[in-house]
Amino acid sequence: MNTILECSHVSKRFGKKTVLQDVNIQIEPGHIIGLLGPNGSGKTTLIKLSCGLLTPSEGDIRILGKPVDPSGKLKIAYLPDKNSLSDWMQVSQIVDMFHDFYSNFDRGKAYEMLKRLDIDPKLKLKTLSKGTREKVQLILVMSRNADLYLLDEPVGGVDPAARDYILQTILTNYNEEGSILISTHLIADVEQMLDRVIFLKEGRVVLDSSVDDIRTQNRKSVDELFREVFTC
């Protein structure tokens, strides 16, 4: 089975501060993996490194066996933790742009999701609420038939109803032959969809296990184990 993402001995420093240290991760197709850890544990850094938005200080990152290059970026669908879309553009213009650049982007699927949410494609992004903009961004990401979905805090800072919609959208639209790496600290909301979890603590992987193993060996839910590992 082809490894989609492989991080070998990856470290990242910002100045003198070490944010990630000697991280080793392999992700195979067909998994939904939770990248869990408290704020500042290095989740966002690891995701950005995986999609080439950060350069590792040490170590090697490969997507389908190759360093992250333009062709690798076609295989990754990344949802950042902030708005990266141009506010002055209409939703339809952004959809067209994704269709132009990503051969695996399904425009019909995107419009279908927009219609379901009653978002007018003719509206400019700056006229939409923050929550709606986040949903547009999620729709764009999930309309791609990618090998790896890197979702950075998709349910952070949204109300419970929106959380349900977001998780449902992820589950019903991702390419099942690919994998999802979802970072969050809101474990209870995502636990049911995960089949593997990676705990990050102070830049180090402290646990990499299947959810089934946690439940059978530790006799705990992921949320309970998380609270135990990250107790203050």
Binding site: L53, D69, P70, S71, K73, Y78, P80, K82, N83, F101
Partner: peptide
């Protein structure tokens, strides 16, 4: 800036 996340994720060099 903020929009660089989108720019650098495009499948182009």
């Amino acid at each position: 800036g903020d929009q660089a996340y989108l720019t650098h994720m495009l499948p182009v060099s």
